[in-house]
Design a protein around this nucleic acid. Sequence first.
RNA 1: CGGGGCGUAGCGCAGCCUGGCUAGCGCACCUGCCUUGGGAGCAGGGGGUCGGAGGUUCGAAUCCUCUCGCCCCGACCA
Length: 558
Amino acid sequence: MRFSKLFIPTLREIPADAEAVSHILMLRAGYVRQLAAGLYIYLPLGWKVIGKINAILKEEMDRIGGQEISMPVLHPAEIWKQTGRWDAIGGEMFRLKDRSDRDLCLGMTHEEIMTWLASKEIRSYRDLPQVWYQIQTKLRDEARPKSGILRTREFIMKDSYSFDTTDEGLNTNYDLHAQAYHRIFGRCGLRFMQVESDTGMMGGAGAHEFMAPSPAGEDEVAICPACGYAANVELALSTPVGNAPADWAREEVHTPDKRTVQEVSHFLKVKPSYFIKSILVMAGPTPVLALVRGDQELHEKKLTKIIGPFRPAQKAEVKEILGVEAGFIGPMGQKVRIVGDACLKEGIYVSGANKPHYHLKGIAADRDFSAEWHDIHTARGGDVCPFCSGTLHVERVIEIGNIFKLGTKYSEPLGAVFLDENGNEKAIIMGSYGIGPARIAAAAIEQNNDKDGIIWPRSIAPFDVELIPLNMADPTTTATAEMLYQALAERGIEVLMDDRNERAGVKFKDADLIGIPTQVILGEKNLKEGLVEIKDRKTKETIKVKAEEVAEKIASLL
RNA sequence: CGGGGCGUAGCGCAGCCUGGCUAGCGCACCUGCCUUGGGAGCAGGGGGUCGGAGGUUCGAAUCCUCUCGCCCCGACCA
C-alpha cells in the first residue's frame, strides 16, 4: 500500500486523555480514535493488526477442532432469565426493549446462546463432542472503562465453547484450548504466563487465566520461580515469612488510645508482624471475627469463599457484639465464629485485650484462643511459596485470555441434554474459553516499544516492510522504490511505501512511530552506488544491500 | 457509585484567582518560494466565541447555579 493513499493520521503530541503507553502510541501512530468513553474506532492500521491477530486465532482454533460460527449480539431476555443471569447481573448488562416491549439485552458473553443452540440441536452422545467458536462483538456497560483499548464497553472477543459427554471429555477440550492459547500468544510475540484463576460466579471445576506482564495491567499474579506455581493474587496461596521466635510471658499491657496496629506497634516497639489484627465482619446477620497478622492484609475474596458474602461491621456493632470498642478487640474468649489466617497458628503474638486501652502480649493459638484456620491474607512478593518454599514474587499483568470449566451450570437450566449409550438423559458438560484480540494488540505494544514508538512483533504488524524513499524529487529514488515495491509484493511481502512528498525526518519519525518491524531506506547517496539500507526497527541495526538483492534478502529475514 | 482533575482552533496549551480594548501561543492546515538522511526555512493566509443552559453585572472565557462530557484513583468486573 501507498502511504499517501492510506489514512494514517499520526500525532506529534501526546493526547491529553491518554495515560497507558499502548493507548498513547495507538493514538499517536494513527491506529485508533476514541468515539466516547470505552468506545473506539479502529483506523486502517489498527484494523489490519486486529485482522492479523484474528487470523492466528482462527488457525489455532481450527487446529483443535473448533468450528467457527456467528451468533447475534442482540439477545432475547428469556434465555438469560432461564440461567438466572438476567437478575444476577447488575448494571453491567445493556438492556433494551423492542417495539413490542419485549426485553432484550446486548450480549456480554455467549454462554446462554451457545447453550441454547446446543439444547435445540444436540440429541445423542453421538453428536458430541462439539467445539464452537466465534469472533464477535461483546458489550458491557463497564463501571469504569480505562486504559484505552484495554477496558472498553464494546469489544471483540474470540469465545469458544466445548460440549462433552463426560468430565474426561471436558478436560481434553480444556487442555486443547490451553495448548492452543499457548501457541496463539506465542505466535503473537507476547511474553505471557498461564495462572490459576478464580472461578468466581462462574463456579465449576477450575479456571486459568493467560496473563501478559505489563505495568498497564489491572491484575496481579503471584509467581514462584522455583516450582512454577503461578496464580492470580485473588486466590494465590502464600506463607508470610515467619517471625523470629518471641518468648514473651503472657501479660496485659496498657496501650492508652493506641488502636491501630501501626500505633500499638510503635508504642510497644514490637514489629507489626507480631500482631494479630482482629476484624469483625457481618456475613448477613452472623458476625465473624477474621484474624490476620498485623503486617498482612485480609483478602476479602478468600474470606468470602469460606463464610459467604460479608461486609465490615460498623463500630457500634463491634461494641455490641464483642463488648469492646474497635481497636482493642482480640480473639480470646470470644464466642463468635473465628476464622484465622493459617500463619497465625505458629508463634507468639500481641492482640487487643478485649478491654479498652489494653493489649495482650504473649498469646499463642490453641493455648489462648482457637479458630478455623485458612489462608485469608493477600499474597505479597517475598512471601514463601506454599508448595516448594521458594520465594514468591508478584507481578502486574494484563489478562489476555481465560479458560473455564463450566460443567453443567448452563446446560442444566437451559435443558441442553443428550442421551448416553444406555439411553439415560444427561446434561452436557461444558467449557468456555475467551481471548480479547484488542488486548493482545495492546499488550504487544506495552511489551514492545521505545521512545520513538511501537515495535510490532512481525506476526501481527500491519505490514511486513516499510519502504522509505527519502527524496521523492529524485527520479532514481522513486524508480528504485517502485521496483522494490513490485519485487517485494511478488514475494507476498506486505509493503507500506511512504510515497508522500515529505522530508526525510518526517518519514523517519512516522516510520518509527508506526512500528513496522523492517524499514527499507532509499537515500540518494547510497543509490549512487546501487545500495539501499535495511533497518531493523527494534535493534536499529542497518545493513546495506544492493537494490536488486533487497527482496531476496528480506524474504530470508522474515 | 465514592474521591480527584480537566473541558478555550484539528492537537498541545496560556489567559480565569484579581471580570474591561479586536481571545493568545506552539504545532498542524492553505498559498508561494525554497528544501529533501531524523518532525526544515522565509513570506502570506484561513480557522475558535471559550462544552451546554441559566444567572449576577454597564460588561463574563473569567464570578454563581445547574447540566453534559472526558481522564485518573477506588469500588465493581459473570
